[in-house]
Design a protein around this nucleic acid. Structure first.
Length: 568
RNA sequence: UACCCCGUGGUGUAAUUGGCAACACUACUGAUUUUGGUUCAGUCAUUCUAGGUUCAAGUCCUAGCGGGGUAGCCA
């Protein structure tokens, strides 16, 4: 499959550049930046989700379009939350999305340099060791409307600070007893500038540095400096860091080091899902879903298992745009992106759910005819496959009604329908059980109407899919739906949580009866079940039984007519 | 109630930086169709409000209104 067509992510080919590209163009033109060097800086404390995918596409895309570089850097400054499992999943997800980092880094690689720079700030009188505990620090900080008060330890001499800081590093003090703080302005209207903490004492085991350190840098102290060390020119982050930019700038200025430009954009929000790491973690830990890669999760690993293609996610990321307005994208756009891709590349197969028998009474006893059916009407080069046709077929019970409304174009008693890739059949009778339920539909076929060789001139309103009962292969089908039943799961009534908004019908497991060719589908292969939806082979498949996940259903205008009462 | 950011169709993004409000998606019409899929055509806006500058304002100015963010030793 061609993984690059249709992607208009070349900055030069798109007529209108978004505000970040415009800022980059301006800086490049003014010689304020030597090139476009970006980074994707996740904290390894959870799995990546579709919102991160937007950020990944942005950062790697910018680097690619401007012939720059993009690094992957793990922001691992808080050992109490971070794990190697997450590091590995993140690398896998970035690669799966189709990106390759120019170099791989960890903020923890810079702990030594950060420490040296901290001593420099102490010597310059720009940082001090503070003995206030967490609670006191909070009180001294003031509030949104009131200025803070200077810490009583603010005016220690550089010598005293240096001694104390070295002893902090040496492990002489217990957790939480002291911090190193930047000396900025306790009265600043920007709370981030009220002598922010640079280091806290944490006697914790770090996933990479082990027990080497017992003081760990805060985000603000580590992030910009890491950017600087790597020669990043554009440090792109989400809106909630806007208030941190003055501090980002202050640190680079105080250190007199390479000074990247931080630019903030609005993170992705999407309907019918939650995006916070905390909530995703809760869904996993409390077993509301089957792990991080549950196909209903908005995680990249979940979307991957669901059957989404990297190309469709990249197209989606471009489609939603980049701006500073805090918006919520309709999940339909994500679904459309994968439909658009799969319509072009997925082979069509026939699979019947909830079957009803269709017997062709004028079919030669025991005859099985192999029909040649195109794999993809959108792509002639996809070739054909053979589908067995016989006198004993299965069709979906949805596709038959004994007496049907005028707009019902499927099979009804006394009516006709085209069997996709087969013949036109005419229904003359039904068989019912003792309770009056239809158990079998009796038809005759019209030999003049064979698919591809039909010279009969007959026109029928509808075409339905089918499988030959004798040759049908049973498969397990997992029909997934949205995890939440409301647009904004976070909007809850008093006393309820987002969990109360979960969709109880987000997974429906059923048996499918498939044409034999489907057995050839290998792991990860995506196909369209004709008239139903796009499906992917799930890794739970065994030699005995294939398992398919529904990626997304086809648009269903008949279903919509039924739902809105316009089907009569 | 302090500071910062943001307000353009139902949704999301544009508007050559002061010159006919455009594109995509949804919805609704209709056409085509051996998938009720796909495809094609059409319809859907007092640019948050009020003033001001200007021949001309979505864009500039003033005031207001609305939304989001910020008081972790999280990132």
């Amino acid at each position: 499959m061609n993984d690059t067509t249709r992607e208009s992510d070349s900055a030069s080919s798109r007529p209108n550049k978004h505000f970040i590209e415009q800022a980059i163009d301006a800086d490049l033109a003014a010689n304020k930046a030597a090139g476009v060097f970006t980074r994707f800086p996740p904290e390894p404390n959870g799995y990546l989700h579709i919102g991160h995918a937007k950020s990944i596409c942005l950062n790697f895309g910018l680097a690619k379009n401007y012939s720059g570089t993009c690094n992957l850097r793990f922001d691992d400054t808080n050992p109490s939350k971070e794990e190697t499992e997450y590091v590995e999943s993140i690398m896998e997800d970035v690669r799966w999305l189709g990106f390759q980092w120019d170099s791989l880094h960890y903020a923890s690689d810079y702990f030594g340099q950060l420490y040296e720079w901290a001593e420099k700030l102490i010597n310059d009188g720009k940082a001090y060791v503070c003995d206030l505990n967490a609670e006191e620090t909070r009180q001294y900080r003031g509030s949104l409307t009131e200025p803070g008060k200077n810490s009583p330890f603010r005016d220690r001499t550089p010598e005293e600070n240096l001694d104390l800081f070295r002893r902090m590093k040496a492990g002489e003090f217990p957790d939480g007893s002291r911090t190193l703080r930047a000396k900025i302005d306790m009265a600043s209207p920007n709370l981030n500038l009220r002598d922010p903490v640079m280091y806290r004492i944490m006697h914790a085991h770090h996933h990479r540095t082990g027990d080497e350190w017992c003081i760990y840098p805060m985000y603000d102290w580590a992030h910009g400096q890491s950017d600087s060390i790597e020669g990043i020119t554009f440090s792109i982050c989400t809106l909630e860091f806007e208030n941190h930019r003055p501090l980002y700038d202050w640190y680079c200025g105080a250190l007199e080091i390479h000074h990247p430009r931080q630019i903030e954009f609005a993170r992705l929000n999407m309907t019918y899902t939650v995006m916070s790491k905390r909530k995703l973690l809760q869904l996993v830990k409390e077993n509301h879903v089957n792990g991080w890669d549950d196909p209903r999760m908005p995680t990249i690993s979940g979307l991957r298992r669901r059957g989404y293609t990297p190309e469709s996610i990249r197209n989606f990321a471009i489609d939603v745009g980049v701006a500073k307005f805090n918006s919520t994208i309709d999940v339909i756009r994500l679904e459309n992106a994968v439909r658009e891709h799969l319509n072009r590349v997925a082979s069509r197969r026939m699979v019947v759910f909830d079957p009803i028998k269709l017997t062709i009474t004028n079919w030669p006893e025991g005859k099985v005819e192999m029909m040649e059916v195109g794999n993809n009407p959108e792509d002639e080069s996809a070739g054909k496959r053979k589908v067995p046709f016989s006198g004993s077929l299965l069709i979906g019970s949805d596709d038959f009604q004994e007496e049907a409304p005028r707009k019902f174009f499927r099979l009804k008693k006394g009516g006709s329908v085209r069997l996709r890739g087969g013949y036109i059949v005419d229904c003359h009778d039904v068989v019912k059980d003792a309770d009056g339920n239809i158990t079998e539909v009796l038809c005759t076929y019209d030999p003049e109407t064979k698919s591809g060789e039909d010279n009969s001139g007959r026109k029928v309103k509808g075409t339905i899919h089918w499988v030959s009962a004798g040759e049908a292969v049973e498969i397990e089908v997992r029909n997934y739906d949205r995890l939440f039943s409301v647009e904004n799961p976070d909007q809850t009534e008093e006393g309820k949580t987002f969990l109360d908004n979960m969709n109880p019908n987000s997974l429906d497991v059923t048996t499918g009866y498939a044409e034999p060719e489907l057995s050839a589908a290998g792991e990860d292969e995506r196909v369209q079940f004709e008239r139903l939806g796009y499906y992917v082979v799930d890794p739970d498949s065994t030699a005995e039984k294939q398992v398919f996940n529904r990626i997304v259903p086809l648009r269903d205008s008949w279903g919509k007519m039924v739902a809105t009462g316009k089907a009569g």
